[in-house]
Design a protein around this nucleic acid. Structure first.
Length: 436
RNA sequence: GCCCUCCUAGCUCAAUUGGCAGAGCAGCUGACUCUUAAUCAGCGGGUUGAAGGUUCGAGUCCUUCGGGGGGCACCA
C-alpha cells in the first residue's frame, strides 16, 4: 500500500524506528527498519524530521502489540519542514498564533481541522438543498456604488480608471431582486459581505451570507426553507438535533415555534406594545434613551434589550413593525405589520427573511423617508435608482432569506467565537519584520 | 473608543516576599530491530514584547507604547 502525509511523531529504537504519519483524514503508524528498506532507504530515513512530508510504500500489517502499521519497503521525501513544528503533545495553543498561522494550527490541531472541514460540509449541504429545490447559484457585484440592502457602515474603495468611489457590499439583496425581475425565479448566492464595524466573538468584518429569493413565495416559504437548510446542515456535520453549544443545550427538532414580535414584547416586557406610553416607560426602565426617537425605534431597542436574550431555542420571530422594514411587504390585513421574520438561537440572530416588497412606488417613498432617531448610516433605506427602476418593470411577489453562515457554523460546531470557524479571521498586521 | 487580563528558549510552561532566568518537548552527539508523548547519557539554545523609571538588586513594582484574549460599546 502507498500513503503520504506529515511526520507527527518519531520513536527511535536503534536500527528501527516508528513514525506517525498524518493526513487530513487519519493518522497511521509506519515501521522503518534498516534491514527492511536497505542502505539507500536508511540513509534517507536518517534525514527525516518532525514536520516533514513523506511518501511510504509498504505492506500493511500489525505490530507485536497489535497496532495497524505500514511496514515501509520504500520511502520518498516529499517536502522538508525547515521550521520546527509545535510541541508534539500540546500542539499550538496560543490563540494569536492559531489565527495568524492557521496552516500550522490545521496540521497540528486535528480539532481545528475538523471544525473548518465541518464548516465546508455545512456550505455543501446548503448547496445540495438549494439545487434540489430548483434554485440556481449566481454571483452579483461585491463592489457597489450604493451599499444597500442592509444597515451597516461600508468599506470604501476606489476605481482608478473610472475615478469613482465604490463600496464593498454589505448585502447582495438588491441585485438578487433585480434577477427576479429578469425572470430568474429561484436564485441564491453564498458569498462574503463586508461591514466596517467592530470585532467581537460574533462579528468579523467580512463574513459569509447566503441569500435566497423565491418568486411567488413568501416568508412562510422561507421559514420552511430555513428549516430544511438547517436540518440538512445538522445531518452533514452529525451529532443529532439536540446539541450542546458551550453550556447550553439546543433542541433543533422540527418544526420550530413561530412567535410574533408583538406577543414576545408583551410577554417578555410585560407591556402592551400598542401603548406608546407603556413602551417609552418600559424602555426608560431598561436604561434606553428615548428622547427624539420614533416610537418604533424605541420599541426596537426595547426588543433587543429585553426580548433577544430570552430567545433560547430556535424560534422564528415574525411580523415586525413595518416602519423598521423598508424592504418588506406589509400584511394585506394590517399595513402596520411587515411580513418579516428573524431566526434566533440562544439570543443570536441567525437568519432574516421577508415577503419582499415589490411595489416600486411604495419602495421609493420608503427610501426617501428617514426615521427620526436613526442616522442615515443605520438605516436600510438608501435610495437606489437602479433598483427602483428595476421594480418598475414588475418584480414577482417573492420570499427572500438571508442566513449568517459563520454563526450557524459556530453553533453547529460548538465554537464560542466566530474566529474559530473562519479560516483567516481579520488580525492587525504584525509590525515586526517577517522571517526570511 | 472604554474596562479587565496576558506576553519568559522554536513549542508547552516554571521561577517563593524584589535576590544567580529553569524544565519538558523540539534540535545536535552517542546507545538501542516492535515503539506508543519510546527510553537512557551528553551538548547547545534567552535583549523575559519594547522603552523608560523606582531599587544595592526587577521576569516580578511603577509609567508609556506595541500585540493578544475576554467583556462593554458598536453591530436597528
Amino acid at each position: 500500500m502507498r500513503i503520504a502525509g506529515r511526520i507527527m511523531l518519531r520513536r527511535g529504537q536503534g536500527k528501527v524506528f516508528f513514525l506517525e504519519i498524518r493526513d487530513w483524514t487519519e493518522r497511521i503508524q509506519v515501521f522503518v527498519g534498516k534491514n527492511q528498506i536497505g542502505e539507500a532507504g536508511w540513509a534517507i530515513a536518517g534525514h527525516l524530521d518532525l514536520g516533514d512530508l513523506v511518501g511510504v510504500d509498504g505492506r500493511l500489517g500489525f505490530t507485536k502489540t497489535g497496532e495497524l502499521t505500514v511496514f515501509a519497503g520504500h520511502l520518498v521525501f516529499l517536502a522538508k519542514s525547515l521550521l520546527p513544528p509545535p510541541e508534539k503533545w500540546h500542539g499550538l495553543t496560543d490563540q494569536e498564533q492559531r489565527y495568524r498561522q492557521r496552516e500550522v494550527d490545521l496540521f497540528s490541531n486535528p480539532e481545528s481541522m475538523n471544525v473548518l472541514l465541518g464548516r465546508s460540509k455545512i456550505v455543501s449541504a446548503f448547496r445540495s438543498v438549494m439545487a434540489a429545490k430548483g434554485f440556481v447559484e449566481v454571483e452579483t457585484p461585491t463592489m457597489q456604488s450604493i451599499a444597500g440592502g442592509a444597515a451597516a457602515r461600508p468599506f470604501v474603495t476606489h476605481h482608478n480608471a473610472l475615478d469613482i468611489d465604490l463600496f464593498l457590499r454589505i448585502a447582495p439583496e438588491l441585485y438578487l431582486k433585480r434577477l427576479l425581475v429578469g425572470g430568474m425565479e429561484r436564485v441564491f448566492e453564498i458569498g462574503r459581505v463586508y461591514r466596517n464595524e467592530g470585532l467581537s466573538p460574533r462579528h468579523n468584518p467580512e463574513f459569509t451570507m447566503m441569500e435566497a429569493y423565491q418568486a411567488y413565495g413568501d416568508y412562510h416559504a422561507m421559514m420552511d426553507l430555513t428549516e430544511a437548510l438547517f436540518a440538512s446542515a445538522i445531518e452533514a456535520v452529525g451529532g443529532g438535533f439536540v446539541r450542546t453549544w458551550g453550556e447550553a443545550t439546543i433542541d433543533f427538532t422540527l418544526p420550530w415555534p413561530r412567535r410574533t414580535y408583538h406577543d414576545l414584547v408583551a410577554e417578555c416586557a410585560a407591556i402592551d406594545p400598542h401603548d406608546p406610553d407603556a413602551v417609552v416607560e418600559r424602555a426608560r426602565a431598561a436604561g434606553i434613551e428615548t428622547a427624539g426617537k420614533d416610537q418604533v425605534v424605541v420599541l426596537s431597542e426595547l426588543f433587543e434589550a429585553v426580548v433577544e436574550d430570552q430567545l433560547t431555542g430556535p424560534v422564528f420571530v415574525i411580523d415586525y413593525p413595518a416602519e423598521i422594514c423598508p424592504l418588506t411587504k406589509r400584511k394585506t390585513t394590517n399595513p402596520a405589520v411587515a411580513e418579516r421574520f428573524e431566526l434566533y438561537i440562544k439570543g443570536v440572530e441567525l437568519a432574516n427573511a421577508y415577503t419582499e416588497l415589490n411595489d416600486p412606488i411604495l419602495q421609493e417613498s420608503l427610501f426617501r423617508r428617514q426615521l427620526a432617531g436613526l442616522p442615515a448610516e443605520e438605516s436600510m433605506a438608501k435610495m437606489d435608482d437602479e433598483f427602483i427602476r428595476a421594480l418598475r418593470h414588475a418584480m414577482p411577489p417573492a420570499g427572500g432569506l438571508g442566513i449568517g453562515v459563520d454563526r450557524l457554523a459556530m453553533i453547529l460546531l460548538d465554537r464560542s467565537t466566530i474566529r474559530d470557524v473562519i479560516l483567516f479571521p481579520l488580525m492587525r498586521p504584525r509590525s515586526a519584520a517577517p522571517p526570511p
